[in-house]
Design a protein around this nucleic acid. Structure first.
Lengths: 369, 369
DNA sequence: GAAGTCGGTGAATCAGCAC
DNA sequence: TGTGCTGATTCACCGACTT
């Protein structure tokens, strides 16, 4: 432990190096307004390593800090750091934790057991997730954040409802957020150009949490500071931070990163989220929404070709089945085909292009991002 | 308990009325292929009731079945029904559970503790969620499903990867699903026109889970059957079901609802054959069929590497010979290689991937029965 | 300079069968 | 049950490079 902060004074806008539980226990009680925590996920990967289809190796998280002997050991660790957080939180402070299905159920249960009161679970929908290379599961395309107040009695927590609504085209901000991964310029690299930290979070994610649940000048504590995304965003948004990080290398990188950040003007602090490209609509969703029935026969505009709609969102022609695009190409003998503009369903005695159903769906999805 | 099923016979396509743990314990072990469970959420609402902005009262879930004395009582209940499910699941069966932040962390922790192996967490993004009337939180716009196999060793579970991909415009199905709430015609009403069940799930949600993770003819168990959405969808998709429901009123509504459902045609049900189920074609057969000549030189697509086809179906590079896969890995210096997609033969002056010969062979094999 | 191509990569609990 | 062989498998984005 390289620091001994006074029990009276908060080490503001500093990165403390050491074990987070010990460091938090050295801070005064009831002293921070918000906690953001990105704890180890306890991934338990296989020993063989995962290969991509091109035989390159996936650079997975295999760091020592993510290794726990058992679920019980992980639970003990979780209760300890959550308890330490709770002690330093002001009565109306709130806590954010991010995790995946590997750990988030353990974390959620533990914080309920400790008396935290869950306000929302938030889904970070990744714009560009890693695919599932083996084709054995659904693409793991999201992570979960839990937002909780210190207790059920903490009614006075900060939540900028109106600002969030204004930044969301006057619709309430939902619990599912669509945000890209941290890549490109934003991703910190080491001298060799490799990623400096395996799990650096996007600043956009932190920005939305801090804008939602803190005021300018509030103190934000991050017990798993890593390369300091929380600190960088806090400084830019005019919040104070306390970072705790076990690895000196990460702490140093975080200090340099934060030093380069400048605070936004007060006026610029509440930006509207950028508009995303039009949402992609799976053909299966069009069936699920009831626009097209399973078993219905689709044709081209001039009714020369026919195909049957399957309940899984594929089209069938005789024994062959595939996506709307693939089957469209097949029946025409072409290398490719846009199924949305090729296939039609009979409505009011006339062929209606299925792309019109997609347009309808997009209208419904617009409010949901 | 109004039923005593034989330990030998499965009560298929029936609704059993009674406590789900007792009912499951009366079923034979290792007998069902899939479980879908929508347990009580333990909502812990305040006693005052929630008012909309126009002062009308929100018709919230306040039924007795959703009341538990404490988190511990809810955990005990959860472990009991999950254990009973696990006993009746076949070794490669999978379990789906749906919940919200009130209960899903308890459920997820409990099933991990019991030895289930989480395959994915799935986010059901609601197209039309109820707004947050007080403006104190984010709109609760999603629920979470956990998909788990019976144990980490259950590698042979059903997952229709190719069919899902085909229904999603040839992209892997992600873990976030956008599906509307159950409303309108689909929502069951009582004699007064009020909703019959407070938490009826949309059939589209069940359809996607059953299409993903079961085969036609599979047995799907639902221990919290309610008004029988699982049974209705299972019947329509050609699956068998076992429903267990405590309330006679709901069970009767479910029976009537399911009786009115007709199964989709066999043609509409047929799933795309999984790629791995396609017949294996030895490389030697491709030579024997005359698609490739012994002595012919194969190359990679860009003609950087060369190998000679031997009459026994191996490839030779200088003094070394081996399978198309082994030699492909060798020349590239990789640990492994799919020779079918790596090697090309010159046809019409251009490299043609040898996998296309395999496709041709498969077509011939299929038509030959 | 613009447009297109190519390679790299992201918190991953990611095989099945014969012997 | 363990070992070893065969073989099935990826999407969105970014940056560097080529045309």
């Amino acid at each position: 432990m390289g620091f001994v902060p006074s029990a009276q004074r908060l080490p503001l806008d500093e990165v403390l190096v050491g074990d987070c539980v010990a460091a938090m226990n050295a801070l005064p009680a009831s002293s921070v307004d918000c906690v953001f925590a990105d704890p180890p996920y306890n991934l338990q990967l296989g020993t063989a390593g995962l290969l991509r289809p091109d035989q390159s190796r996936v650079d997975a998280v295999d760091d020592d800090w993510d290794k726990f002997a058992s679920l019980e050991a992980y639970d003990t660790f979780t209760r300890e750091w959550l308890s330490a957080c709770r002690r330093v939180m002001k009565p109306n402070a709130t806590l954010w934790v991010i995790g995946s299905y590997h750990n988030i159920f353990r974390v959620g249960s533990a914080l309920q057991d400790l008396g935290f009161w869950i306000l929302n679970d938030i889904v970070w929908r990744k714009a560009n997730p890693m695919p599932n290379f083996r084709g054995k599961r659904f693409t793991n395309a999201h992570e979960t954040l839990i937002w909780a107040s210190r207790s059920a009695e903490s009614k006075g927590y900060t939540f900028h409802y109106e600002a969030l609504k204004g930044g969301n085209e006057d619709l309430q901000m939902r619990s599912d957020w669509f945000i890209p991964l941290c890549t490109g310029e934003e991703r910190l690299k080491d001298a060799e150009g490799a990623k400096l930290h395996p799990t650096q979070k996007p600043e956009a994610l932190l920005a939305r949490t801090l804008l939602s649940a803190t005021n300018p000048g509030d103190v934000v504590l991050d017990p798993f500071f890593g390369t300091g995304t929380t600190g960088a965003v806090a400084k830019r948004l005019g919040r104070r931070f306390i970072g705790i990080e076990r690895e000196e290398t990460y702490a140093n990188a975080a200090r340099a990163r934060i030093a380069a950040v400048t605070q936004l003007s007060q006026a610029a602090l509440m930006l509207a989220p950028a508009k995303r490209a039009e949402p992609r609509v799976p053909f299966l969703s069009v069936i699920e929404a009831g626009h097209i029935r399973p078993g219905e026969v689709l044709t081209d505009e001039r009714r020369r070709f026919k195909a049957t709609v399957r309940p899984d969102g594929q089209l069938g022609v005789g024994p062959v089945c595939g996506s709307i695009h693939k089957i469209g190409a097949l029946v025409q003998g072409l290398p490719a085909c846009n199924g949305w503009t090729f296939w039609h369903a009979e409505r009011n005695g006339r062929p209606l292009v299925i792309d019109s159903f997609r347009e309808t769906m997009r209208g419904a999805m617009a409010s949901a991002g």
